[in-house]
């Protein structure tokens, strides 16, 4: 039997204006070596900029809350979670996404190592993991397994059980020349 009546009427909120009417903010970002000058809504997330405005769909969204790292990109050399940053915060920054790893069609040693080590299955987390690995190897060329685990603690993989990812990053560490 019904116990109580709960009314869930909310106080009227100011109606949001259509996208175009919200003050658009001009920003400039350099992504994978190419400079883009464009305008974004203040609320546009960095990952939305990357995926929807720049059509770089290799960067993924997995959890929306900074846990899983599928959206990891490098911003000025540091791995950041692009689902929890606003695009405007990247104004003037230099970004590296998975699409920028290969050079002249040749896989980056990290990409190659992930492939050679069977370090991916569905491939959804892989771009973010490779960029976290990139950050690790840029300052630690001989990472221990513990270093690797720590470096990718913020990257969830639901397919591989991480075992082959550890191997991939160890292999990449041997093969990377200058990250």
């Amino acid at each position: 039997m019904p116990k109580k009546v709960v009314k869930r009427k909310r106080a009227p909120k100011p109606k949001p204006a259509p996208e175009a009417a919200i003050t658009a903010v001009p920003i400039s970002v350099k992504v994978n070596g190419k400079t883009h000058s464009l305008t974004v809504e203040p609320r546009t997330l960095l990952v939305e900029l990357i995926r929807e405005k720049l059509d770089l769909t290799g960067t993924h969204v997995g959890c929306d809350t900074t846990y899983c790292g599928a959206c990891t990109v490098l911003m000025n050399g540091a791995a950041v979670k692009s689902c929890t940053m606003f695009a405007v915060q990247a104004d003037g920054a230099e970004l590296l996404t998975v699409e920028g790893l290969e050079k002249d069609g040749q896989l980056h040693p990290i990409q190659k190592a992930f492939g050679d080590s069977y370090g991916l299955q569905c491939g959804y987390c892989t771009p973010g993991l490779m960029l976290s690995a990139f950050q690790l190897l840029s300052h630690n060329r001989q990472p221990s397994e513990k270093d690797i685990r720590k470096a990718i603690a913020g990257n969830t993989c639901r397919c591989t059980g991480y075992q082959n990812i550890f191997k991939a990053i160890q292999l990449a560490a041997q093969n990377v020349k200058g990250v």
């Binding site: 995926r51 929807e52 059509d55 770089l56 769909t57 290799g58 960067t59 993924h60 969204v61 996404t97 998975v98 699409e99 790893l101 290969e102 896989l107 990409q111 190659k112 992930f114 492939g115 050679d116 069977y118 991916l120 491939g123 959804y124 892989t126 771009p127 490779m130």
Partner: peptide, 23 residues
């Protein structure tokens, strides 16, 4: 044989086609 996976190349390059990538 542990043949390398044919799927790998596109996924490693960020060129997989996941449903949310479709516009």
């Amino acid at each position: 044989k542990p043949l390398p996976r044919k799927e790998e190349d596109r996924l490693l390059r960020g060129r997989g086609k996941f449903a949310d990538d479709i516009k």
